[in-house]
Design a protein around this nucleic acid. Structure first.
Lengths: 159, 159
DNA sequence: AAGATCACGCAAGATTCTTGCGTATTGCCC
DNA sequence: GGGCAATACGCAAGAATCTTGCGTGATCTT
C-alpha cells in the first residue's frame, strides 16, 4: 500500500487531473500525464486500492434541483464525553438535511453542512430537530450567500 | 434546459447513483436505473448540459497524502460593502490552503474550509496571512477531529 | 380521433478498457 | 564492477463500452 512517499510526479499529476475531472477517460488522462494508457490505468488502480483515491462523485447543482438553502451549523454540546459525542455523531447521519458533518475542537463541538429546499425547511430543522436534541447546548447558524471558491481537497502548487 | 420540474424518477436515480459513484460505467448505470444504455447516456448528457451535473471529482484521502490538518475558519470583516466582500473573496482564491470558501450571513462574513500538512502550517497561515489581511476583524478557527458524515450534496429520501 | 412529439430499445461502428508479454531501467547484493 | 531481481514502461490484441442512427410505441395536444 503506497503512501505519500511512494508517489512520484506522475502520480501527483494523475491526482490533480482526476480531482478536476473524475470522469476523464484513461487515454485522455494518459496523454495529459505523459505515459501510455496501460501503465496509467495501473497507477490509477493502485491509487484506488491504496485508498488514496477514496472514490468518485458527481457534483450537483443545488439551486437547479430546488435546493435553495445551503447553511452551516455550529453545535455546542453540554457534555463532551466520548459516548455523548458518538451519540450526536450518529444522529447527524439520520438527518437528510445534513450532507456532511465534522467533529471539531474549538468553541463548538460539531460543524454541520446543511442543504434544504427553502429557508422554512431549514428553520424547521434547526428548531424542531437540532435545538430539541438532548445534550445540545448552543446552535449557531451561518446561511451561505454564495460559494466563493470550490476546489478539491488537495492543492497542487508545490509538488 | 430542464430544471427540477422536468426530472422524473429515473433522472433522480441517475443523480443518486452518480453522486455515489461518479465513475460508474454507463451500462452499469443503465442496469441500476432500469433502462437500456443509449437512453441512459442521453439522460446523463442532458443533465450535464443543463448544468444539473456540474462535473465529476475524485475524492482524495488527505491523511494518506500527508495532509493531517483539516480546519474551518470563520472570518468577520470590519466593513461589508460589496467591494470589500469581493476583495476578500478574491483573496481566498489565492490561498492554496483554502480549499473552498463561502460567503455567509450571521455572526461571520466568510467560512473557509482549509487543509494543511500540519498544525504549524495552518497556524502560520492564520497568523501571517489571515489575521494580517486588511479589513479582517475576527478569525475563529475550528480544527476538525474527524469527519462524521460524508455524503453528496443532495439527499434522496423523498423523491 | 389524428397528428406531433418524445423517449425507448436494437444494432453496428468507433472508441476505450484490459490483459499478457517482452524490454528497458533501477537498485541491490555479491 | 558485474550480475540478478524487481519494477515500470509500451505494444498488441481481445473484450467491453461508448456512441450514433433508426424504427417503434406511448403520451399529449389540437
Amino acid at each position: 500500500m503506497p503512501l505519500k512517499a511512494d508517489l512520484d510526479a506522475i502520480d501527483w499529476k494523475i491526482l490533480r487531473e482526476l480531482q478536476a475531472d473524475g470522469r476523464m477517460t484513461n487515454v485522455e488522462l494518459s496523454n495529459r500525464v505523459g505515459i501510455s494508457a496501460p501503465p496509467c490505468l495501473r497507477r490509477v488502480k493502485r491509487l484506488e486500492e491504496a485508498g488514496i483515491i477514496r472514490g468518485y462523485r458527481a457534483l450537483l447543482n443545488a439551486p437547479a434541483l430546488g435546493l435553495d438553502v445551503v447553511a452551516f451549523c455550529l453545535i455546542g454540546l453540554h457534555h463532551q464525553a466520548d459516548a455523548e459525542l458518538r451519540t450526536f455523531a450518529e444522529r447527524t447521519r439520520g438527518w437528510p438535511i445534513v450532507r456532511d458533518a465534522w467533529m471539531v475542537s474549538g468553541e463548538s463541538d460539531f460543524l454541520l453542512h446543511c442543504v434544504a429546499s427553502d429557508l422554512g425547511a431549514f428553520q424547521t430543522f434547526v428548531i424542531e430537530e437540532l435545538t430539541s436534541t438532548p445534550n445540545v447546548d448552543t446552535v449557531r447558524t451561518a446561511l451561505t450567500i454564495r460559494r466563493v471558491k470550490d476546489e478539491g481537497l488537495v492543492s497542487f502548487a508545490q509538488p
